[in-house]
Design a protein around this nucleic acid. Sequence first.
DNA 1: TTGTAAGCGTTATCAG
DNA 2: CTGATAACGCTTACAA
Lengths: 341, 341
Amino acid sequence: MSSGDRLPARLADVAEAAGVSTATVSRVLGGSPHKVSAATRELVEKTAARLGYRVNPIARALRSSLTRSVGMVVPSIRNPFFTELVEEVEHALSAHDLNLFLSDSRGSVELEAKRLRSMSSGTVDGILLVPCHAERSAPAMAAAVAQVPVVQLDREVPSLRIPWVGVEDRSGIRDVMAHLHERGVRSIAHVTSTESSLSAAVRTQEVIAEAARLGITLRPEHLIDGSFSIAEGHGAAELLLRSGEVPDAVVCTDDLLALGVVAGLQAGGRSVPGDVLVTGFDDIELASMMLPSLTTVRQPMELIAAEAVRLLTQGRDATRSGARITIPGTLQVRQTTQPRA
Amino acid sequence: MSSGDRLPARLADVAEAAGVSTATVSRVLGGSPHKVSAATRELVEKTAARLGYRVNPIARALRSSLTRSVGMVVPSIRNPFFTELVEEVEHALSAHDLNLFLSDSRGSVELEAKRLRSMSSGTVDGILLVPCHAERSAPAMAAAVAQVPVVQLDREVPSLRIPWVGVEDRSGIRDVMAHLHERGVRSIAHVTSTESSLSAAVRTQEVIAEAARLGITLRPEHLIDGSFSIAEGHGAAELLLRSGEVPDAVVCTDDLLALGVVAGLQAGGRSVPGDVLVTGFDDIELASMMLPSLTTVRQPMELIAAEAVRLLTQGRDATRSGARITIPGTLQVRQTTQPRA
DNA sequence: TTGTAAGCGTTATCAG
DNA sequence: CTGATAACGCTTACAA
């Protein structure tokens, strides 16, 4: 049934065709530090090209126990922040000639554990993980890290000594609050998702602290805690409108929530920023494309991805260090916090 | 990135501990059809569990030339339509216990070729590809398909006999046009990206044909052809507004363009749907979350993903067949085409 | 500088 | 039903 496609050339075929040993071919083509004369090298390269030879990465991996690929597990690839992070990671890996094995844990600790198990049994040289739960992700991670280097991104499981790379949450929030204060905001609501992520919890902490420090009112019933999604933000806005007293601004711990809040406020007949200011966090692509465009804190995803990949490629020592690399975000002031005319 | 702590148990270790041969262990644990006595089977399973044995997928792949993973290459993982498609593919693969190798070609034929080359040299059992160009993607695809089964998703390279799964473009557009006609629309503009995708070209063809058939005006300068992005849609709306004569509706070949068009029209002081109706195509998550929510054609991505995976897993025969599987989309009527009060 | 040969951890083909 | 044993394609001591 298989038509005229010939089986791909193996290392041995190249060796035979070139009249040298397999060892020599391997040394030339595998980029080994071993010395090979210029003439032989050229001969080998020529014949390899002529035969259309390509290494069998599986065989290479079995022999060298190096796969040249890394795994990445995120809670939801559909969340634009993670999508953009994955994209940056892919680019960073390309530079090192590494492939990406992507998995979505769908926010499930069990599924995450399964993915980690499958990856840590030799398919990848390292794992980049955005844990889906701050405590319950720990056991599977501990098991994985015994087999292969692991680096956490964005979200952190504090009970483990696994390196982490993420944004400086507190300073980002401080910038937001200072900006709102400057805009004359006297009262805020806060929409967050402390359950999903430790980062969100830290941000919320900081929102509360800064509100107190700046004399901005944050009523307990105006602190709304759910999950990260547009729908959640939409619901939060409805709640707010029903509460009767609508604050001057709504501070959200991520852009999806902020998008939902803006839509919800508009649906309720309020103008943003005319009646209420809104801020987000992350700076996903949509934040600058939406109307009104969203004031938010830009997470430098390129940097986060690059640092994570660097940690991973620098090997066990680096990933053993328990390093915590925090990278500052930058406030992007846009239309949702324009001063009222 | 070096090896782990305790060396993991190998097949041979299990065999030794259980006092049987490696062949027997392999037969039990590898799910081979070969008969093994119930007693031996249980013994092996017990010892394997006790030693925490897990197969080495690399060794297995080398021996059996089956990796239990498939590669997927999309033009941009950031495009929500592809993101959602990837997610569905991941789910479909999970059901078959297959892993996903994801790559982003960033719309570059060269990068795409590189990805295909790397994947087709043994790292995956099959490739799901959304080609980034209707002609220039062909050479690399032809080379890949000689090594490994390939299935095209969404976009198609017609010059190759490679199976394809996608939505029924023409009927989707006919539904949109019929709906607009019913709404009393007499003139439209059309925003598309025929360069990116044959599907878009087909949709555009159908828009023109249906406009003619239904007596709806589509002025040549109101046919705007660019790339698939929110920014592009935004620009198209500005162009439209500057043209002086704003049509009754704007038909877009994807949701991103439609999102941009809505934002652009609003920025220019027009109301959607008050002054202008807008339609999209795809039904990405945002389409129903945005305000006003977007009337669009829902692509059944779960089905598309499932069919593609089915073709791939059914092996060479299926992927040699040159099958073209088209799946009907369904019109989702939402706020952007509400009748003017 | 080059070659020989021993594995890497499985699966599959034989005999028994 | 079970067990030796030879591959799979490559890297890397060790020899020459």
